[in-house]
Simulated assay, not measured.
Amino acid sequence: MAGSSATKKKKGTASTVKKNPKRPKSTREPKKPKSARSAVGSEANSTAAEDASDEDDESDNGPYCICRGPDDHRWMICCERCEDWFHGECVHISKDIGESLIEKFICPNCTSDNLVTIYKKTCTLASCRKAARLTHSPPSVFCSDEHAQLWWERMLAKLPKARTKSALSDELSQEEFMALLSSDLATIDGDGSWTLRAPFSGKPAEVNGDDTDEEKEYLEKKANARFKLAEETLLCQKMIALVEMVHERRRAAISAGRIGEDICGYDQRLDSIGARDAFAAFVKSPEGEAIFQASKVDDPQGEGDDVRGMCERKRCKIHSGWHKMLLLAVKYQIKEMADQAAEVGEDERILREAAEERWRRRQAEKNWVEVLDG
């Protein structure tokens, strides 16, 4: 495993180094009698400590790696086969890759056609270099739920809008795609994969009976309600994305030395978070479209200033804890809408099951024959 390869404990700084052979018995000093041992106890302890120190020095001096050099406290990784330690620079592996993405390291000396270094699958988000959560339950091809959401938002942003879509194009628009996701024809698995069921597969669940028009109207209203909830949920997900982008801009400004850790960093463009209509207007504005297309919050005046638009107060009480508080508020809204969508879906399911049962009974009633006496 990557963790075990990169974090094997070493004695001193490396435990897998072969020690120099001990001196032969013929060269050792003769054993002293028990009466003499107590008299020279302190001397023996001092000698043992010096021997242990010498062994540690020998371990530190190696040789290790393909360079056969010492352990000079640079980052090292252990080969799973020969158990020798290698400097990351010598085998062209950085520390973050070695500790995060290597499942099993095989050194250049041991590498063969059947024995190679095994890497973990990276997060599906292109810019991420962390490992996907394939071993989690449920498994996911993303390293986090946030990256899964960001990936879906970027994919959705690539689809054309209805007003710009060509009449002869067979490409889904954003509205059509969201309608599929909110219907019972499409599902998104925990690993981020999207499954589309054939529209007429399985047994019919269409509405029948004397009150067909009334039931169809009822289902249509429920479908519209689910679609509206899906749109509002997507809007809330964009709120979360904007909060994270502003937070990333603040962290970048701190790393660049433009502001300190105690600077607030709140952006005025977060004022509409939580107000769906106001935020929807911001998303459709030229500034909002540019932000979500680039997935980055920048200088509001477009001059490349790293901190313009931020709140530069120290320990700001007005916006205290804005990052965490905004995320919690929006996620609570998403949970509420998910509960509402579940209730609407349950109402639809009950009606459809009743319609299907009624359809089955009518089919059974038609399955009869008349016996005529000869």
Rank of each mutant, 00 (worst) to 15 (best):
A2E: 07
S4Y: 14
S5K: 08
A6K: 04
K8E: 15
K10V: 10
T13F: 15
T13L: 15
A14G: 11
A14Y: 09
T16E: 13
R23G: 08
S26H: 12
T27P: 01
R28C: 14
E29M: 15
P30I: 14
K34M: 15
A36K: 14
S42M: 07
E58V: 10
N61D: 15
N61R: 15
P63T: 02
D72Y: 07
I77R: 02
C78V: 06
F86G: 05
I93F: 14
E99W: 03
S100K: 14
I102S: 01
P108R: 09
S112W: 06
V116T: 13
V116E: 09
I118D: 02
I118W: 02
Y119R: 09
Y119N: 11
Y119C: 07
K120Y: 09
T122C: 12
C128L: 01
K130I: 02
A132N: 08
R133N: 12
R133I: 06
T135Y: 01
S137V: 12
S140D: 06
H147N: 08
Q149E: 08
Q149T: 12
L150V: 06
W152T: 03
W152S: 09
E153C: 01
E153Q: 13
R154G: 01
L156Q: 01
A162W: 07
T164S: 15
L168W: 11
S169Y: 05
Q174T: 03
E175Y: 00
E176T: 00
I188S: 11
D189Q: 14
G190C: 06
D191F: 13
R197H: 11
P199S: 02
P199D: 05
P199N: 04
F200I: 13
P204M: 03
A205T: 14
G209F: 00
D210F: 04
D213A: 15
E217C: 06
E217G: 00
L219G: 04
E220F: 02
E220M: 02
K221M: 13
A223T: 09
N224E: 08
A241E: 12
R249W: 01
R258I: 03
E261W: 05
C264L: 03
D267R: 15
G274D: 00
R276D: 08
R276H: 08
A278G: 05
F282H: 08
F282G: 10
V283E: 13
E287M: 07
G288L: 05
A290I: 06
A290N: 09
D298E: 14
D299M: 04
D299Y: 07
Q301C: 12
M310H: 04
E312H: 07
E312N: 01
R313T: 12
C316Y: 01
K317Y: 07
W322H: 04
W322Q: 04
M325P: 00
L326G: 05
L327S: 06
Y332C: 06
Q333G: 04
I334W: 02
K335L: 13
A341Y: 11
V344M: 03
G345A: 11
E346V: 03
E346G: 04
D347M: 14
E348C: 12
I350D: 11
L351H: 05
A354M: 15
A355V: 00
R358C: 08
W359M: 12
R360W: 09
R360T: 12
R361A: 09
R362C: 07
K366S: 09
K366E: 06
V369S: 10
E370V: 13
G374E: 13
